[in-house]
Amino acid sequence: MLTRREIIAAAGLALIAGPAHAQGGYSDRPIRILVGYPAGGGVDIVARLFAEPMKAALGQSVIVENRAGASAMIAASAVAKSPPDGLTLLMAASGEVAINQHLYRDKMSYDPLRELAPVALVGIVPCVVVVAAQTPVRTAAELIAYARANRGKLSFSSSGIGNPQQLAGELMNSMAGTDVLHVPYRGSAPAVTDVATGAVTMSFSSLAAALPLIQDGRLRAVAVTSRERMPQLPDVAPLAEAAPELKSYELLNWFGLFATAATPESIVARLNEIVATGLRDKRPPRSSKSRASCRES
């Protein structure tokens, strides 16, 4: 998993590595990276981190443009409908390219799988499952046992309908045979705060949102949604280890770079190379203080 710290370091490496003037089949007009979320959010930060090395490598201006709204579909649609010249790119979370088509079939103005060209995966972010400190659950296995013993009585919060956090909870219900009611919130902060107050039993959350409450002892992390443990939470088991029925459980949030479909392969390959250079194995050593890049889009 790529942490924010690693992304910053990787972006710096790409900056050092990149020479050049308008390369890879590009014109010398500015490149725009559209983001479907407000400035300062996780996807926006990643887009800005990669704008600099892209600028250095390609020798032309790279501008990040926030077009927030409509579950990030305004930005995604704009890229889908742009000329396929690599000058209009999308830094996307999984929602606008892999989930929204299942939720907004009649309202979507673009087909993400047909009208967007995947360029590079930038980051993968597991969710963490948290409960209130007084909840009698300390492990992933205990969480599933508790949910099975209290069918129909428990609830989980997420930062909104149809986001990966909700899907993570619903996948647990489906695979484990539990019946934990989803309670959507507008954003991750109230979603985790209401676990601490006891209004909801648990939350599927980004680590970034839950960490302050974990650190002050109000919340307990009891599971993660990746197959592997998170470096930041080495003592917290994956849900996949909680019960035999969950052996194949995994639900990840992720984000990455897209171009318009039919963008020349040479441009897509060059952009992929720039991102890969930034992410490659010259990552700084992880430290116990490093924070996850778990983020709300």
Binding site: S94, V97, P112, A120, L167, S174
Partner: peptide, 30 residues
């Protein structure tokens, strides 16, 4: 991950998310 591998990943994830949305009968907010 190459662009082709990334395309396969996105397609696979979209299928998986679609199955979960359908199974849980998740409806979008209006």
């Amino acid at each position: 991950m190459s662009p082709a591998q990334y395309r396969d990943f996105v397609t696979s994830e979209a299928e998986k998310f679609g199955r979960i949305v359908a199974q849980a009968n998740i409806k979008a907010e209006n």
